[in-house]
Design a protein around this nucleic acid. Structure first.
Lengths: 229, 229
DNA sequence: CTTATTATTATCAAATTGTTAACTGCTAAA
DNA sequence: TTTAGCAGTTAACAATTTGATAATAATAAG
């Protein structure tokens, strides 16, 4: 995965379950946070903006259904996936669960393998497109860098950059003002195990400067380069 | 329902189940078709292009898992939802089911209410607008792409494109300006597990360019292709 | 002024894509 | 049944672009 890890928040009052589920989801490469009750779940959800929330129904301080309802009433959680987790295999409760806006419903005792499968299935289907998930373009005073279109616009005029040039510029511009060491640049743009000569970066910087025809990449002698919008 | 009814295909060898499930889903406003075995399911799926397929695992002539695998290997069913339905509550089978690309897994005996809830939950989450699901026609300055009729018009003149050519053009044109990686193209147009040579995409691009006789597909070297209206 | 570092330029090799023709399997007409 | 034609794919080669390097000039730091 080149993309950032998916964030999952698990809320359950049983420590054992939290631990086991957390461990198993982390093994799958997810970024997992836990909460011990409904209130904590809500608070952490607001902070983290997780992609998925797994809610135990029976919890102290707001049960899972309440938490789900509250989340669904807030637009920021519109796209947050919700899975209910509960000992109640009773069908009426499951139907209620789905009606409050849950995306899945898993009954205890939990098979961790199955839970992981279901979580994967949800994410597999719910792949946001890059621009939806804000993988978006970098905008500056008279420079726009659009990784979707692989295009750079200088004062409205499209400028074609070659792949490496684009990636290098994109890296520098992703954190304006910050100085990138030559080593960092090599690692990110060329990859860890590629060996290229010392002057290669300079030449690419030169080409970018020439094509953009503006003074946005600054040399920090002995250190590296930085970008200023 | 605001949009045309969602189409659901149910495949099971037990008449009773087919009837009950069909009835209940129809009550919810879905357009339901049935199949009695795996082969029939595949045939009808190709005709109907359903939004959701509910597959019994144990069926004569291709079981549900086979049907799912076959569907998943074809790009046209990329966005088709799949629910497995089975008496096997055995966890290993469920995990396998999800791994073949299922979106949900319901065990018999079925509670129809619950099934309906799960179906609703799936559609609630993954409902796509017509143009997202590739149904709407794309119009540009002097180019019209109509996926309904599988027809392209350049400056009012109908141009015949072969299937792959059409799908490739349609994919690129569905997001003008956005660059599609060769890999993305392969996955969407050729399918996940189809292996074709490196030059195949180029040749198809070439043919499209030739037939359309206009400069709308642009190469981004080292990255992919993009369309501009 | 000397040295270390970066800028510039031209050149060449490598990677990528374009183009054409040929081959395969399938379908439909003769 | 044969044949012709088409879609899809591949192979082979041409054309193009990109990326890396070397050589040299310029520049800033001490």
């Amino acid at each position: 995965m080149d993309l950032p890890k998916k964030k999952i928040l698990i809320a359950d009052d049983e420590e054992d379950i939290l631990e086991i589920v957390q461990y198993n989801l982390q093994q799958e490469g997810y970024d997992v946070t836990t909460a011990k009750n409904g209130d904590e779940a809500l608070t952490k959800a607001k902070q983290l903006k997780p992609d998925l929330v797994i809610l135990d129904i029976m919890m102290p301080k707001r049960n899972g259904v309440e938490v789900c309802q509250l989340m669904r009433s807030q637009p920021q959680f519109k796209d947050t996936l919700v899975i209910f987790l509960t000992a109640l295999s009773d069908e009426t409760n499951q139907v209620k669960g789905f009606d409050t806006g849950a995306d899945d419903y898993i009954t205890k005792p939990i098979s961790t393998k199955l839970l992981v499968s279901r979580v994967n299935a949800l994410f597999r289907r719910f792949q946001k497109t890059p621009e939806e998930s804000g993988q978006g373009l970098l905008e500056f005073e008279n420079l726009i860098i659009d990784p979707q279109q692989y295009v750079v616009k200088v004062s409205g005029v499209e400028v074609m950059l070659a792949k490496k040039e684009f990636e290098l510029l994109h890296m520098l511009a992703s954190r304006p003002g910050r100085v990138f060491l030559r080593n960092e640049i090599l690692n990110q743009v060329w990859g860890n195990n590629v060996i290229v000569g010392d002057r290669t970066i300079d030449v690419h910087i030169r080409k970018i400067r020439q094509k953009l025809d503006m003074d946005c990449i600054h040399t920090v002698k002995g250190v590296g380069y930085k970008f200023t919008g």
